[in-house]
């Protein structure tokens, strides 16, 4: 084979393969938004939308009862108090409810904290709509400030019949140090 030909062929092949490499590097990063989309669709990990749902009127299904549990956690040693004022609520799908959570900054410094919601079972997440939640944005607390924060939600009546209990969990992360 002619050497020039061979060099040309090699150069072309290498270029194409390098393009594949670059594309696959990009693909690794593309998995991040792809994963979020997948989570939305499948309820993987009980990841929930971080934005408020529009307040739509659903038909209220008074014949059906779903138990909603509220649980709270603090990540690492977030120096806070955090509790839900309602531990458990029996709801009718389609009806709007408001429950209160109480959080308090236990330090003498201002604190920025983010609450991360997670719903279990994950597949119920897309039927659990929050129209108001302290988890949509970071919360700033003045030193030693404590306050009550409401969450307004509705369970979409389309929730498949097998779900009788839904758990809404919040974890507060202290984000002050990363500011």
């Amino acid at each position: 084979m002619n050497t020039d030909d061979l060099q040309q062929k090699n150069a072309r092949l290498v270029r194409n393969l390098v393009l594949v490499v670059v594309a696959m590097f990009g693909f690794g990063f593309a998995l991040v938004p792809l994963y979020d989309v997948l989570c939305d669709i499948t309820g993987l990990n009980g990841k929930v939308a971080a934005t408020a749902a529009k307040e739509v009127v659903y038909p209220i299904d008074n014949s059906r009862e779903v138990t909603v549990e509220f649980i709270t956690s603090l990540n690492e040693s977030a120096p806070m108090l955090f509790r839900s004022e309602t531990k458990k609520l029996i709801v009718h799908p389609g009806e709007y409810y408001t429950v209160n959570f109480y959080a308090e900054n236990l330090t003498d410094k201002p604190m920025v904290a983010q609450a991360i919601p997670s719903i279990s079972p994950g597949l119920a997440a897309e039927y659990f709509k929050k129209t108001e939640c302290f988890c949509f944005t970071e919360q700033t607390f003045k030193p030693r400030e404590g306050r009550t924060m409401p969450v307004r939600f509705v369970v979409n009546p389309d929730l498949p019949k097998q779900y009788k209990t839904i758990t809404l969990a919040y974890t507060f992360f202290d984000n002050t140090k990363t500011q």
Binding site: L17, M24, G26, F27, L31
Partner: peptide, 14 residues
Amino acid sequence: LIAVMPVFAGAVTM
């Protein structure tokens, strides 16, 4: 190798 090493490189970069 060409398909997956870049993905791993991406993961550790993250």
